[in-house]
Design a binder for these strands. Structure first.
Length: 433
RNA sequence: GACCCCUUCGUCUAGUGGCCUAGGACUCCAGGUUUUCAUCCUGGCAACACGGGUUCGAGUCCCGUAGGGGUCGCCA
């Protein structure tokens, strides 16, 4: 039997990390079993479904390289089929018509007089006694089919063998199984994934603006890193391996190894993982992306300068969004100084002399290259007996405003003589006179 | 409220009755390397929710308690 899974989102907003993780697991499961992964767009709620959301869905799947087999099925196009099935159920005596709450006549499914149980791939045996689940609406009084009907009919039509979805669907599963039985269809295997929770341990809702896949894309996460992190949120291969290729994931992925308890999303770890992936991409692709970011931020910057800066920051970027802060002082005229830092490292004995010496020496040389820069600093150390830290930290703060950053000699030679002198003089004037 | 689900370091997890003095990773801290910063290396802190059983032996099985979560729509 060919294994078929599906991702069946309703396009009512941007794709959320919780949804996409479900998609990833379905995809991985299908690939692992040499099956098919189908996409079905459940757009029956016309009030809430939007084209933007559908586009966002396609963009997201494409970005993450989650390719699906066959053409996507739009549920709204299945409407007449769904109603037909409801009529069939009616004729079979499995459903009845009723005017509930005076809203007009709707078709209601009659829950059978049986206990219903199923073996969930993740939660184990789950059961409900007779009478625990109420009859439910199949077709609204306006003639539109309801989720349960549409979902089951389409799953049957698409021959879905394994349904992997969020555990908020557990209660629905009993209804769905009753429907499968009434329709005499093979019941697929169900697996219910726990949810992803936010840093407060609370469920991520679609309203959590910071959990959209598209936001992580915008901020410069790499798709492979994003998938790798997400796949580990609620699943593990059983050994200590964390960084893994898509092929390795496919090889190792099984439902049995999925966690049955909720997982907390931890951006620090995702960022670390992104850094691991980023350190492995080619200079060429890193430079291309970094160049794009910097030039869009500082449009008047010279190409040459941008390139130098990129080389300087290359290995301290964990996510592309880091670049903005990392490079700012290379491109703006006025940099800001942190008062605390100034008080701690600049307003001290000997700093003024250091600055005087440095600006004087630097003004004497023509070309400001790394060798001469290093010599100036070395000479000063020899003369005064100070440590490198005592010399380099104040200089760094004066020219960049920060206590940390790329190699100082590199920073200085990239900044250039006029800027260095100007910034040091500014600091002197502001804080040391 | 009813029904259901979940519970190992702060976080993600390994663990399927003896290999657990509970392992790995992220974070954090300390030391080393880097004459600055970052990287890197080494080390450290840190958990079986609680209470009862079952068993020669329990993180692992059973029951209960507590806490967290889900579902109870003519939404999906």
């Amino acid at each position: 039997m060919k294994i078929i899974t599906r991702f069946a989102p309703s396009p009512t907003g941007n794709v959320h990390i919780g949804n996409i993780r479900v998609a990833i697991y379905n995809w991985l499961f299908a690939k692992h079993n040499h099956g098919n992964f189908l996409l079905r767009i459940e757009d029956t709620d016309k009030d809430r479904s939007t084209d933007d959301a559908i586009n966002n869905l396609f963009t997201t799947l494409q970005w993450l390289n989650l390719n699906y087999d066959e053409e996507p099925l739009y549920q709204s196009k299945q409407e007449s089929k769904h109603v037909e099935v409801a009529e069939y159920l009616l004729s079979k005596g499995c459903a009845y018509k009723e005017n509930k709450d005076n809203k007009g006549e709707c078709i209601i499914f009659k829950m059978p007089n049986d206990d219903i149980s199923f073996n969930d791939g993740i939660k184990g045996r789950l059961k409900k006694p007779i009478g625990d689940i109420d009859d439910f609406v199949l077709v609204r009084s306006n003639g539109k089919p309801v989720f349960h009907l549409a979902n089951v009919v389409d799953d049957i039509e698409q021959k879905i063998t394994h349904i992997i979805r969020g555990d908020d669907h557990i209660e629905n599963t009993y209804k769905h199984i009753a429907l499968y039985r009434a329709l005499n269809a093979d019941i697929p295997s169900f697996s219910h994934l726990p949810m992803i929770v936010n840093s407060q341990g609370k469920p991520f809702s679609k309203r959590d603006g910071d959990a959209y896949v598209s936001d992580f894309k915008k901020r410069g996460y790499l798709p492979q890193a994003f998938v790798n992190y997400l796949v580990l949120l609620g699943w593990s291969p059983g050994n200590d391996q964390e960084i893994m290729s898509i092929d390795e994931m496919i090889n190792m992925f099984t439902i049995e190894r999925c966690q049955s308890s909720p997982a907390q999303f931890d951006e620090k770890k995702m960022k670390w993982m992104n850094g691991e992936y980023l350190s492995k991409i080619s200079n060429e692709s890193f430079n291309k992306e970094a160049f794009k970011i910097i030039t869009s931020l500082h449009s008047s910057a010279s190409e040459n300068l941008v390139k130098k800066v990129i080389a300087l920051i290359r290995d301290r970027v964990k996510v592309f969004e880091d670049i903005e802060k990392l490079v700012n002082y290379f491109f703006v005229d006025n940099i800001e100084y942190d008062e605390k830092l100034i008080a701690k490292k600049i307003k001290k004995e000997g700093i003024k002399e250091l600055f005087n010496y440095f600006t004087l020496e630097i003004s004497k040389i023509d070309s400001i290259d790394e060798v001469s820069l290093k010599k100036i600093i070395d000479d000063y150390i020899k003369e005064t007996g100070k440590s490198y830290g005592e010399v380099m930290i104040p200089l760094r703060i004066a020219v960049s405003g920060a206590s940390g950053g790329p190699d100082l000699i590199g920073v200085l030679s990239t900044l250039g003589k006029p800027t260095i002198i100007e910034r040091i003089n500014d600091v002197k004037q502001k804080y040391l006179d």
